[in-house]
Amino acid sequence: MDNSITTQAVTFDVFRFNSETDYLPYYKKYTLEVTSEEVVLDILNRIKWEHDGSFSYRRSCRHGICGACAIKVNGKGVLACKERMSDLIELFGTSMSIEPLSEKRAIKDMIVDKADFWDSHEKVKPYLVAQIDESPESENLVSVEEHEALLEADLCIQCGLCHYSCPSVEINDDYFGPAAFVAAYRFNADVRDSATVDRLEQINAPAQGVWDCVKCFECQEVCPKDINPIEKITKLHNMVFSEFVALDNVATRHAVGFASSIRKHGMLDEGELVRYSEGTIPMILKHGVVGLKMLKKGKVVPPWKMPKSDKLDEIQALVRSSSTAEF
């Protein structure tokens, strides 16, 4: 920083759209001299203040805590006020697109309709459920370990970056999305809360719940607060079993099936996993045609030829000694 401040020209292709007047979005090019000190929000401000006052975006705190200014730069979700231009130039060079979090939800330029995000958030009971003492004389005692069990989930600023980077959200409107799961985890992990089972039943529901996570890790990659949403999704999966709210369905059997397979073979028995998860008849109906083709191409191992790990007894001993879940 004692070094001098440098500048370089960067070209921005900026998504422009006003749902009141435009039938389709369009892109407008701006070339700006960018200094080594600037963040993306500085660029948005300069476009608005120096070039076109109608350019619109949400922003408030300027330092990464209010969560208002999430957008995408070259497809990478960023909190505009916390993303250094110099880092983006290093990643992408000096030509960048600036787009809203979700184009299909764009209302005006960078501003998107986040109703689906807030709806999902509200559905997981995002508050401590407890009898509240309105004039307490002492606090609840919470040990350091219990406090750490939140895994920083309480740091989520509801910016929506993970939600609108999640491919499942993009495809399935009912899917709660990573941020809502982080909220569910934050309260489920709180020793002061008493609605864990309620929330688990909610997030365990087919199509909208945690089982529709595709495990792409986009949420972890994009989170500007390093909250690691998928870690919380995994924890919720674990809680579904540990709190005995697991339903006997394809999703849970898919997870449990790995344990049974490993116990038997050390390795996964792919065919058996699918059969166990889906049931024999649904499996044939759904995968019969492809399955036959795979069989013909030598891609299906018959049960009697199922390979087994060496030292299988060792694996079996560990499965016996180290299992922590039941179904």
């Binding site: 509240i132 309105e134 040990s143």
Partner: peptide, 22 residues
């Protein structure tokens, strides 16, 4: 003191001492 403890009872995530107090 009452106000902060009330916030704690409502769910605020304060850093804790080893004895579990705020």
């Amino acid at each position: 003191p009452e106000t902060i403890r009330w916030a704690e009872h409502m769910g605020a995530v304060f850093s804790r001492n080893d004895d579990g107090t705020i």
